[in-house]
Design a protein around this nucleic acid. Structure first.
Length: 599
RNA sequence: GGUCCGGUAGCUCAGUUGAAUAGAGCAACUGCCUUCUAAGCAGUAGGUCACAGGUUUGAAUCCUGUCCGGAUCACCA
């Protein structure tokens, strides 16, 4: 149990005993003490001053005396400044905490809470390769899933592959027209890029045909409809839905190319799933909801046969759920998919990692399921995240300003290699170890850059800034880890190794303020982990773990571990170092980032 | 126009369940490598927390209004 959650009931009890005053523990405000004051944690007294009809100073003194007298193993001393009661926790408490936890590889992990949650993320289209925006989605989804697991949730990762629709047909048509039978194999290219190139070719040709028609005097709107290549794509979609064998065969073949490409990228960024759903399998199953909705009078039919849901009472609009020709739309498919996922997993919560341009859509989806009285409706949560923009503005595929996922990963890794070589730090590494290190720094750097920001905020992706290896970056944290590991290696090589396994006599050691600060920070990790899960927000972990690394580096510059003032101090600092390394490694793991033993 | 999100240092961001003098990084400048890895540390400088009211012992944080930026409101997905 965290120190703060131990203090709260003690304060509540003290208030009861001193003044016969009842207070809800949740109403107690306890913060870390500001560095300019003496103390570890501070109780804000203002909130109950009025009810007690005493001065804050008096209450602070009463509480301080009571707590230090009754719980001397926790509270060492106190001071009152204005309405703040600053509490100094005993060294014994902190040292004891450190000694019981410093070897835990997964300090902060919780036991199972029995809650089942599925995280749907990544969900690519099979007509083009992944770009920077997809990477944000993948990193976020993966990390949130792991953070939830660490908090005791039973988590399943799922992915919906958008493998059908007009956009796929565009790539297919362009391939038929322009490829002359070329394949990823014959052109030695990555399958998703190969297919994506034909998607671009389609658009180029489409534009050409439109302007050609417009020269002839056709209006722009008409031209967009009449362009032969577009008609071809639309026909292909009809043929696909009619199960025309040669279309299905081509579709399978091209999708397979894309999957092979995706697999390579997924593997290098660590994306994985428990189950994949293919839209081509699931796009029909939403239709049964239309019947159900009509029966329950949640939906209504218009004269032309189209089916709608009225959400005006909820401040939204009327939404279409079935076209007049009887085909389903996007939202209908999502209804079906939600149900399918519930059958598969019986989830308590279902998290959708989807960009914020779909906030409205997701709101509608949840509302509709609630109106249909589905048991899983309330558990739906849209983890909405902002676009990744470039300093020049929004990424646009048609203007060629999209940052390709594979390209940016390569670039980051290349930069890592360059910086490492510039520093002359390649000595003692094998070629394979170096490759691994560059990968760790490059990929980790990108992950950290995209995860350190609050998901709901837009990210301005400045390429120069993203390859930075100083300051608030993954590299800084990785470097701190490597530094600690270097110390620990030396210690283990020492014949006196093992001294730190004893320790009861060190509990009353004096602590320097930096040692104290480090222990206090590490003690907060489980609380941070809870917060990150509650908020579905990996940036909480990223910001925290940076402050751990930063504080450790200050400590490292100030105090020597190996040449400490006494054997007891050395032992304490080794424990502190080891615990810091463990927390760094685990926190970074939850962000999907590996940390090196040396660099 | 309706709805939602954002506006904090030159830039990128923390802090937004109200609490002490608003914090980091980058960029700039000054120091620190005969002592555990200088991808580091210490320091200087940089702020009308978009603006105006209000609530409160106390507001960057809550409420109201205004301005700016973004998303969305398809028989597209």
């Amino acid at each position: 149990m965290s120190i703060v959650s131990q203090i709260k009931p003690l304060v509540a009890k003290a208030l009861k005993e001193l003044y016969n005053f009842e207070i809800n523990e949740q109403d107690l405000i306890i913060n870390t003490t500001k560095p300019e004051f003496e103390g570890d944690y501070t109780l804000v007294l203002f909130s109950f001053v009025k009810a007690l009809k005493k001065t804050p100073e008096q209450i602070g003194k009463d509480l301080g005396d009571h707590l230090t007298a009754q719980h001397a193993t926790i509270f060492y001393s106190y001071n009152v400044i204005k309405g703040f009661l600053n509490l100094v926790i005993t060294n014994e408490y902190w040292v004891n905490f450190l000694q019981t936890n410093f070897l835990a590889a997964q300090f902060g992990i919780k036991i199972s809470n029995g809650v089942k949650v599925i995280v749907e993320y990544s969900s690519p289209n099979t007509n083009k390769p992944l770009h920077l925006g997809h990477l944000r989605n993948n990193f976020l989804g993966w990390s949130v899933a792991e953070i939830l697991k660490a908090n005791g949730y039973e988590v399943f990762k799922t992915c919906v592959v958008n493998d059908r629709g007009i956009h796929i047909c565009k790539s297919m048509v362009a391939w038929q027209l322009f490829a002359n039978g070329e394949t990823p194999q014959t052109t030695n290219s990555k399958g998703d890029h190969f297919v994506g190139d034909y998607y671009v070719k389609f658009d180029e040709e489409y534009k050409k045909q439109i302007s050609h028609l417009m020269v002839k005097g056709v209006s722009k709107e008409e031209a967009e409809k009449q362009a032969p290549i577009m008609k071809k794509a639309q026909q292909m979609l009809l043929d696909w839905e009619a199960d025309k064998p040669e279309v299905i065969e081509l579709w399978r073949k091209m999708n397979q190319w894309v999957y092979e490409g995706f697999d390579i990228t997924y593997k290098r960024i660590g994306t994985d799933f428990n189950k994949l759903y293919y839209e081509s399998d699931t796009f029909i199953i939403g239709k049964k909801f239309v019947e159900e909705g009509l029966e329950k009078k949640v939906f209504f039919k218009k004269e032309d046969g189209s089916v709608w849901v009225d959400l005006t009472a909820e401040g939204l609009d009327e939404k279409l759920v079935l076209r007049k020709d009887g085909t389903s739309v996007y939202i209908t498919q999502d209804l079906g998919l939600a149900d399918e996922k519930y059958k598969d997993f019986h989830y308590d919560q279902s998290i959708y990692v989807i960009g914020d341009e779909q906030n409205y859509h997701m709101k509608v989806l949840k509302l509709m399921l609630q109106k249909l009285e589905k048991p899983y409706a309330d558990g739906i949560y849209h983890l909405s995240y902002g676009m990744v923009d470039l300093p020049t503005g929004r990424m646009k595929s048609r203007e060629g300003t999209v940052v390709d996922a594979d390209d940016i990963l390569d670039e980051m890794i290349k930069e890592a290699e360059k910086k490492t070589k510039d520093q002359g730090k390649t000595e003692g590494f094998t070629e394979a170890e170096l490759e691994e290190l560059y990968e760790m720094i490059g990929t980790g750097g990108l992950k950290f850059f995209l995860l350190r920001v609050d998901p709901k905020k837009r990210i301005i992706f400045n390429p120069e800034e993203s390859v930075d290896l100083h300051g608030f970056t993954a590299t800084h944290i990785q470097y701190t880890h490597a530094r600690i590991k270097s110390i620990l290696r030396k210690e283990k090589a020492d014949p006196a190794y093992g001294i730190r396994d004893s320790g009861s006599e060190t509990r009353n050691l004096e602590l320097f303020s930096l040692e104290r600060e480090m222990i206090i920070l590490l003690e907060q990790f489980p609380t941070i982990l809870e917060q990150a899960a509650d908020e579905h927000n990996p940036s909480v972990v990223a910001i925290y773990i940076y402050s751990v690394a930063k504080t450790f580096n200050t400590f490292y510059a100030e105090h020597s571990v190996m040449n400490a003032e006494s054997p007891d101090k050395k032992q304490l600092r080794l424990q502190l170092s080891e615990m810091t390394a463990n927390v760094i490694a685990y926190a970074m793991h939850l962000l999907g980032i590996k940390v090196p033993e040396r660099m």
